[in-house]
C-alpha cells in the first residue's frame, strides 16, 4: 500500500515510542499528527495508522469515533467552533452562532460550498472567564462580539 502520511509523521511517532510502555498508546498522538497533515481522517489514513501501530483499522476507527476532535469527514479550510455551553450561553453565544450561520448561509455542522468554512457548535472550551469564546482551527478567540467576529472572518483568505 502506498503511504499517504509523510516521513515527518513517522519521525514524530518514532520519537514518541519510548514514552509509552505499549504501542497502542500511540494511537491518540498518531491521530492528531495525521489530522494535522491531512485535515481529516479518511479510511486510508486510519488504515495506515493501524498498520504502523499494529492494530486492526477497525480499532483505529472505534477509538477515533469516540472523540469529537477527530474529523471523520472533511472540513473547511477554516474550522470555526463556537462554544455554546453555560458560561458562553449566558454571555450571548447563541447570537454569535446565529450570526455566523446567516453570514455564511450554513447551519451548524455545515461547510460552505467553496469548502472555506465549517461551522460547529462546541462544548465548553475552558475559556469561561473570557466568554463568549470560539476556536478557529487550533486557536482560541475570546471576549467575542459580532464586530470582532466579522473583522476576524472577513480578513481570512
Amino acid at each position: 500500500m502506498a503511504k499517504i502520511l509523510s516521513q515527518k509523521f513517522y519521525d514524530e511517532m518514532n520519537k514518541l515510542v519510548p514514552r509509552y510502555p505499549t504501542r497502542v498508546a500511540l494511537l491518540l498522538p498518531a491521530l492528531h499528527q495525521a489530522q494535522e497533515e491531512a485535515g481529516w481522517l479518511p479510511s486510508e489514513v486510519m488504515e495506515e495508522i493501524g498498520e504502523y501501530i499494529g492494530i486492526h483499522p477497525a480499532q483505529v476507527r472505534e477509538v477515533a469515533s469516540f472523540y469529537t476532535m477527530y474529523n471523520l469527514n472533511p472540513v473547511g479550510k477554516y474550522h470555526i467552533k463556537v462554544c455554546t455551553n453555560v458560561a458562553c450561553c449566558l454571555r450571548g453565544a447563541d447570537e454569535i452562532v446565529e450570526h455566523i450561520e446567516k453570514k455564511f448561509g450554513i447551519a451548524c455542522g455545515g461547510t460552505t460550498p467553496d469548502k472555506k468554512f465549517t461551522l460547529m457548535e462546541e462544548e465548553c472550551l475552558g475559556a469561561c472567564g473570557t466568554a463568549p469564546a470560539m476556536m478557529l482551527n487550533d486557536d482560541y478567540y475570546e471576549n467575542l462580539d459580532i464586530k470582532t467576529i466579522d473583522q476576524l472572518l472577513d480578513g481570512l483568505k
Binding site: 455551553n85 453555560v86 458560561a87 465548553c124 475552558g126 475559556a127 469561561c128 472567564g129 473570557t130
Partner: peptide, 11 residues
C-alpha cells in the same frame, strides 16, 4: 482535561 463546564483555572 479541564472539561467541567465553567472551569478555566488549570489553563
Amino acid at each position: 482535561d479541564e472539561s467541567e463546564p465553567g472551569t478555566f483555572k488549570d489553563r
